[in-house]
């Protein structure tokens, strides 16, 4: 079996979990696992990766101080051409989706993005991924190729304890081109609002099912009765019905309240990532197939406009008693 490359993702001094997950997943596929680390003075990440890989290719260069998909693409394609892996795993992250498709085109490689499970048939991957916002699993085979590039959804593989002591090989930066046509400028932190939902004990999460801004009092009253704060799916924030600091999910906040009551939220992976650690999850949704019911502890399949006002009443009664 040919080698497996795993791209280590890191940002602002932190190595992302998906990197270790992919290394652990790759170790189970058979073959030599090579961690590829591009960065500036990130020796600690090289050592960490060595605990999960047979080899670490480490390019230490100022070019990689901040992520730049052009620089990453050039470096990776050079390393891939030199070392000839059969499979490259890249996180299906904001970095990964900006990088992997262009890399695949450049190398004429086979590509499948956002995989959620992986089996191998010899050198050939048989990946699974989701379609229709998580409503179906799609099982794939891949046509014969010299190189397969897969982007991997976080938590597809489980991170385990380190069990290897891979050799760390320092490699000269293979990138010599002028990349000023795409230049990193700065990071800007998201705005901070008045309520920090990561600290809330009780959250009512509201989704697109609320339909219109003018319906917001329906959930506001429930939140008030419970003494909960309001959180939201991206759809609600995009529509401007709640400010962005209330957004739960992959591009919003990660919350772990005692109660997360999801109202009119379908349960897309990007949302669930941000709230699956909640102690008790309740979902109210009219669609019995909504993926949110797969993660919730309790569910009510019904029209939120019928159930929520009743629930608000019942809570008030209980509190009054």
């Amino acid at each position: 079996m040919k080698d497996i490359f795993v791209l280590i993702e890191h940002r602002r001094g932190e190595m992302r979990d998906v990197s270790v997950e992919m290394l652990c997943g790759a170790a189970k596929l058979g073959g030599t696992v090579v961690a590829v680390l591009l960065g500036k003075d990130v020796d600690a990440f090289a050592e960490k990766a060595a605990g999960y890989a047979d080899k670490v290719l480490y390019v230490n260069d100022p070019l990689f101080e901040n992520y730049n998909s052009e620089a990453y693409q050039k470096a990776l394609s050079a390393l891939i051409k030199e070392h000839g892996p059969g499979l490259v795993l890249i996180g299906n992250t904001a970095q990964g989706v900006d990088l992997a498709p262009a890399l695949a085109v450049e190398l004429g490689a086979s590509l499948l993005t956002d995989i959620t499970a992986l089996e191998m048939d010899g050198d050939k991957p048989k990946p699974t991924r989701t379609f229709y916002g998580g409503k179906l699993d799609a099982h794939f085979t891949m046509k014969d190729a010299d190189l397969y590039i897969l982007t991997v959804r976080e938590a597809t593989f489980t991170a385990e304890d380190p069990s290897k002591t891979g050799e760390i090989v320092k490699v000269d930066n293979p990138v010599t081109e002028d990349l000023s046509y795409r230049k990193f400028v700065e990071y800007v932190e998201p705005e901070v609002g008045e309520v920090d939902i990561t600290q809330s004990t009780l959250l009512v999460g509201v989704g697109r099912g609320i339909r219109e801004d003018k319906n917001m009092p329906v959930v506001e009253e429930l939140a008030q009765a419970l003494g909960a704060d309001l959180a939201a799916s991206r759809a609600v924030v995009d529509a401007g019905w709640l400010p962005s600091d209330r957004q739960v999910g992959i591009s919003g906040k990660t919350v772990k309240p005692k109660l997360y009551l999801a109202v009119g939220i379908s349960g897309a992976f990007q949302h669930v990532t941000g709230m699956k650690g909640s102690e008790v999850i309740v979902a109210i949704n009219k669609d019995p197939d909504a993926p949110i019911f797969g993660i919730a502890d309790y569910g009510i399949v019904d029209d939120l406009f019928k159930v929520v006002p009743k629930l608000t009443e019942k809570i008030k009664e209980l509190k009054g008693a």
């Binding site: 992250t93 970095q95 990193f184 990071y187 932190e189 998201p190 962005s244 591009s251 919003g252 990660t254």
Partner: peptide, 8 residues
């Protein structure tokens, strides 16, 4: 990016 961080 993740967490709403913006990369310019």
């Amino acid at each position: 990016l993740e967490g709403g961080l913006m990369e310019f």
